[in-house]
């Protein structure tokens, strides 16, 4: 493959954008935050990051989701950690999110709207248990 120029990149972006605009007009309201501290990286956070991007694209959600990075979230014992902020769902920090679990996260949390019970390590209770 020949080296892509910035102009070609722009053209790809515009084509992609039009394609996406046809499919969906909703804003990007889902955020996925991957912990990229020393602990996360050692546990394979880069692979998780790549797997999330691939999985989101595979399911056609790429215009709804932002994937961001942060440092250590303080849960080094269950790295890689991933925080998911999605409307209509409690904000959750999932632990042990290896690249295989990343695909499950996208399917269950983002597509089916269910929590991954075995991976929750922070922040679900107050949101779920409403009095």
């Amino acid at each position: 493959m020949a080296r892509m120029t910035l102009d070609e990149l722009r053209a790809f972006r515009d084509a992609k954008r039009q394609d996406l605009a046809r499919r969906d007009v909703e804003g990007k309201d889902i955020q996925i935050v991957v912990g990229m501290g020393t602990c996360g990286i050692a546990a394979g956070a880069k692979l998780t990051f790549d797997a999330l991007v691939e999985s989101i694209q595979k399911r056609g959600l790429e215009n709804k989701v932002l994937v961001r990075q942060t440092g250590c979230m303080g849960l080094c014992y269950v790295e890689p950690t991933v925080e998911v902020i999605a409307p209509g769902m409690p904000t959750v920090i999932y632990g042990k999110m290896t690249k295989d679990a990343a695909d499950e996260l996208v399917q269950k949390h983002l597509v089916e709207g269910k929590l991954l019970d075995n991976h929750i390590f922070d922040r679900p209770a107050a949101d779920i248990v409403k009095k």
Binding site: M4, L6, L9, R10, F12, R13, K16, R17, L20, K28, V53, I56, Q57, L61, E62, N63, V65, L66, V67, R68
Partner: peptide, 18 residues
Amino acid sequence: EALGNLEEVSNLVLLREY
């Protein structure tokens, strides 16, 4: 500048290709 927000998944995919 070419892609826009680099945190958008569609842009991440293009960035990787680039």
